[in-house]
Design a protein around this nucleic acid. Structure first.
Lengths: 125, 125
DNA sequence: ACAAGTACTTACCCTAAAGTATGTATTATG
DNA sequence: CATAATACATACTTTAGGGTAAGTACTTGT
């Protein structure tokens, strides 16, 4: 995890937004490119690390654990490791993470409506 | 708008994910730091450009119009300009943009639950 | 005559996020 | 004895997004 220059403007902005805007607060937690995808994968149940890798072929291993670790640190996913060799590690949503399922569903539902052209029926309003 | 190197890996990844993952599709549209905030502001009704500026003090003008233009190009917001001086320009959600309100509400609702500690009641599951 | 307000535009810079590549420990199996 | 499989770690590089600063056009107010 890279160090954060405390005086950078974007960090000040983030600080501001965190307090003022709930949407931004959430983006701090699940923003970034891969986190929503990972959460989406976990929303259907627990998965092994290697299963996640296969489920999201485009993600690099670095990105995958990096975000899993962050999601764990934020209390959104729970990591469970069996002390065996080869390692057996599963990830699943915590209660807080499960609270995001409605968000993910709302997002997915909108995406499907967009693809089905539900919104473009009447001109381009 | 900066040019996009067409052979960069991240763009290929985005291409992949766009087809496979609805969540990612949405992130392409409303991802980035400011877009959700702007949409959140517009979810309560139309606003002038200058009103948006005041409503989101931390945003720079460059970011604000840049994202407004993108949202407009993506058909999520509608720009209306009165041919007067000084200019009078308002932005509002399109039908597709309004379709995002449930998403924004789900996000906001989760944020408030997080702040109220709804999810940490029983240990740290 | 000059500042102020509105809605932008543009050139340049900086940083955080993402990507590349390689390495680690442990055990089973051929 | 070397390879495979799993779940990571880490050094180094690239890039896309965001930030800074300044300018434009047009009119009203002082």
């Amino acid at each position: 995890m890279t160090a954060i220059k405390e005086s950078s403007t974007i960090q000040e902005n983030k600080q501001y937004a965190l307090e003022k805007c709930p949407v931004t607060f959430v983006m701090e937690k699940i923003g970034g490119y891969w986190k929503p995808i990972i959460l989406y994968q976990l929303s259907t149940g627990h998965k092994r690390y290697s299963e996640l890798k296969r489920a999201i072929p485009a993600v690099t291993e670095k990105m995958l654990i990096q975000h899993l670790k962050q999601l764990e640190a934020d209390g959104l996913v729970i990591r469970e490791a069996k002390p065996v060799v080869p390692p057996f590690v599963t990830y699943r949503l915590s209660k807080a993470g499960e609270g995001l399922i409605p968000v993910i569903e709302a997002v997915a539902s909108w995406a499907f409506k967009m693809k089905d052209g539900v919104f473009d029926v009447e001109s381009l309003e």
